[in-house]
Design a protein around this nucleic acid. Sequence first.
DNA 1: TCTGGGGTCCTAGGACCC
DNA 2: TCTGGGGTCCTAGGACCC
Length: 414
Amino acid sequence: MATALIRRIAHLDMDAFYASVELLRYPQLKGLPVVIGGGRRSADNALLQTHADVPLSRIPVADFPRLAGYTGRGVITTATYAARQSGVGSAMGLMKAAKLCPEAILLPVDFAEIRRYSRAFKDIIMDIAPVMEDRGVDEVYIDFTHVPGGQRDGGRVLARLIQKTIFQATGLTCSVGVAPNKLLAKMASEFNKPNGIAVVFEDDMQTKIWPLACRKINGIGPKADEKLQRLGIRTIGDLAQRDVDWLIDHFGQKSGAWLFDAAHGRDDRPLVLESEPVSISRETTFERDLHAVRDKAELGAIFTRLCEQVAADLAAKGYVGKTVGIKLRFDDFKSVTRDQTLEHPTGDAKTIRQVAGQCLKRVPLAQRLRLLGVRVASLTRLGEHDKDASNMAPALMSKGSIALYPVAQERQLF
DNA sequence: TCTGGGGTCCTAGGACCC
DNA sequence: TCTGGGGTCCTAGGACCC
């Protein structure tokens, strides 16, 4: 006789992932405030160069670069728990963090290493529990329902097995929440961080979920939270007390109904096991704000490089796209986007550059810029459209908008 | 001391077609 | 001549997430 299976969805995320990966390389930093961010690791990394003759684990702590005196526009990617004590955290500007915790050690992100560990922990999970949704570099959802051991102790036994296996293989810890659905599992994984497990059942709503701030619901961000607070709603319990129609009146049909369901712990979204990308983009924030006229040469070079990078990314992933767009951010942090859809998809850097240049002409450029981005969307897999399409002239050409203008007017802005 | 980079999804208006 | 829906595509902006 079969026992009834209850839906057990796990959310797992790696603890302070980027920082923890660095600590594997530099164990002498364990327990110290370390902050990751600010730029890419490069071959001429000063620390590595001056200590070329010493094993990495023997580089003296005193020789590591500090946050103090940092200038630049970087932000924190991850901070160790020791650094979080000082109030610094993800997405905080490094210059602000330097005021709060000047003695913190600042290390750049090693993307290659991060990708290696990301693949490693996901491979381990797939071996144990193959129904997994990838939620980025350090997070996944896993369906425990039909996995051997997935029902034992509400999922705790399998969660512990996964934690232990990942730790033995990589030296990294993670936190897991197990619940009837993704919404609750995501919240549960935060309960016992770091290296924790939390199990939530439907009956735990009132005691474990309702006391939490609305902001803990994945999907309620700063704006929605502010509006909820204005309406006197602070906790998920407060939210659950309002009726659907009232929420729909204030937040619209879709959001209102969703808020209501979320407050009652209802979420029937399936795990998404595979997905196709919607867009591929590159953007960069300049070291100083640039002016469209005065810094034209510099901007032009950056613009071209972004287009080349997007083209290279498309090629590497095997996609072409029909919509080319740009994004600008001005010195007051306001941003605008412009895009244009071609008749045929492209992956060609020159074509992307040209269409992106057309988009740029539609933006008034009196203000200085702090960011420029290039995006290609409406993607199709290379080979799933006309063979010649990627080599074809852009649609603009056939529409005549270029041919009709005098050459002087047609000059690219940068 | 201003606030990275790579994404997804939603909304809303207008064009265009049936 | 006027009055309609509905559906799809395109564009712009914004919220949110990792």
